[in-house]
Structure formats: structure tokens, C-alpha cells
Design a protein around this nucleic acid. Structure first.
Lengths: 132, 132
DNA sequence: ATGCGTGTATTAGTTCGCATAATACACTTC
DNA sequence: GAAGTGTATTATGCGAACTAATACACGCAT
């Protein structure tokens, strides 16, 4: 059993879906710093996907600083690096913009939007990466 | 001068960038219901992009319900259709999820995240689609 | 030392989406 | 009828995504 939830669907690259699933698992607490991460071949077999595709996901997760590679041994969830306030803003800005625009089109007012955000924060912590 | 702001950049499909720009313009008030929308050929010439690419954006905007086509005459910004609460939630859920996950990775606490969201709401209304 | 399990690199080939190009057609308006 | 709309068609080039089959370097346990 993989330590993260993933239901492959067309439309988005597989390696991106893997990255997203791992990010979700880490954010929700399903995966914690220092945890052992499954091998490329194990994930490949479990998902029935080409090893190269999984490798691409691992490479991206490593460059994102989410995974630490211990050569010849395996991968582990990395200790989160501290980011500056500026970096935080830059990472969140595009997501915030898309959210606000979508809310405007759906005619969702600001108060409701804020409430939805609070609800989502609670949901993520509770579900612990069960599905979505 | 196009009624929406767009700076073409690689990495994302051009037609998607156009759709995004129009959505932003409508959400910010730069474009309003009933406004005339530039012709495919005009946009094509302005952006120096193939007419087919613009056409693809127009088609998507139409299917999204953002544009109304008056055959043989032109396109206009559509009157927004009412959406149910359920539809609102479904449209916002994935964006909320990605935002919360990204915030968790950036170690941004909930209170700060809510404040950033409020700020983004204000920013969108003020800038009126100048840049971003 | 040998073998197993790690991550990683290489090369090849297929499929598919994006963008371009050049036309052509149906429609409305003046 | 001419000009300006949106739309459809066909063809081509390009690159990303995925698969496939190997091969290599490293750490670790027997």
C-alpha cells in the first residue's frame, strides 16, 4: 500500500498527478519528515506505470525540496526548508488570483469565500489524505 | 487596444492565456455584460497569433458561458448565468485544495492565508486588469 | 566478495496537443 | 454586392508525455 492516495485519470500528466498526491499527503500529515518513501520500482509496479514516469516525479519532488535522496539506499521525506515571506507570497499569489477570479465568476462573495477556505483547511487536516 | 491585458509567455498554451486574460478582465470589471468583444481577426492581428488559436479561445469562452455569439455580427460578453451553491462549491474546491496545500508547504498559517486572500480580493477590484 | 535493492542515465519510438498556414463557407449589415 | 463577422477544413512542424529496454553506480547484508 502506497503512503499516498492517487487515482490516475487522463488529462493531466501522470508524473504531475504523482507529485500532487505526495504534496497532498505531506500537507495533510499522512507523510512526515523522515518517513521512508517507496522505491521507484515499487511505485511503478503498484501504479502499473513506466519506471521512467515515476522517476520524473521523484526528480521533481527532489528539486522541490520535498524528498531527500540517500544514494544507493532510498528516498526520505525531507525536513522542510524555511522560506522567506517574499517566497511565500510569490508561491501563493497565482493560486490566490485564480481562486478570486473563479469566485467572482461564480458570484461568490468575499465572506463566503473566506468561510470556504476555513472549511477546506479543517477538511485537509481531518481527512488525512483519504481521498479528496 | 484590446479590452483585456495579456503578456504572452511560453509554458502555457496561448489560447489558455487568452481565456485567462478575459476571465480576469470580466472578474475585475474591465469587461462588463453586453460589452462588444473584439473580432477573432482583430485579436489575431493585435497579438500576432494565428486566427485558429484565437478561435479556440473564443470557442472555450463561449462554452464556458462567458461569451455570446451573434452569428454574422460578432461576440458580446454574456449575461452571467445563475449557478447553484453546489456548482459554486464544485468549481472552487480544487482551487481551494491546491491553495491550502501550497500554504501548508510554505508554512503559512491559516490566519495569514485568510489575510492574503482578503488582500487579493481588494487588489483585483482596484487594479481593474492593468497588469497583475 | 557477491548479490540484491536503491536512484539515475541513455536511447528509441509512439502518441497527442499546440500552433501555424492557407482556404473556404454561411451569415449579417451597410 | 462588398465587407466584416464566426466557423470548418486540411496539412504541416514541433515538442511534451509516455512507454520500452537496458545499463551503470552506490549502499548494504549475507
Amino acid at each position: 500500500m502506497l503512503p499516498f492516495f492517487l487515482e490516475l485519470s487522463a488529462g493531466t500528466p501522470i508524473y504531475e498527478q504523482i507529485v500532487e498526491a505526495v504534496r497532498r499527503a505531506v500537507a495533510s500529515g499522512r507523510l512526515k519528515e523522515g518517513d521512508r518513501f517507496p522505491s521507484v520500482r515499487a511505485i511503478s509496479a503498484e501504479l502499473r506505470v513506466n519506471p521512467n514516469t515515476v522517476q520524473k516525479a521523484v526528480a521533481e519532488l527532489t528539486s522541490l525540496g520535498l524528498l531527500e535522496v540517500h544514494p544507493g539506499q532510498g528516498c526520505y521525506i525531507a525536513t522542510r526548508s524555511v522560506s522567506t515571506v517574499r517566497q511565500q507570497r510569490e508561491a501563493l499569489a497565482p493560486l490566490l488570483e485564480r481562486l478570486v477570479i473563479e469566485a467572482a465568476h461564480q458570484a461568490v462573495d468575499e465572506a463566503t469565500l473566506l468561510e470556504l477556505l476555513r472549511a477546506k483547511c479543517r477538511e485537509l487536516k481531518i481527512n488525512l489524505d483519504s481521498n479528496s
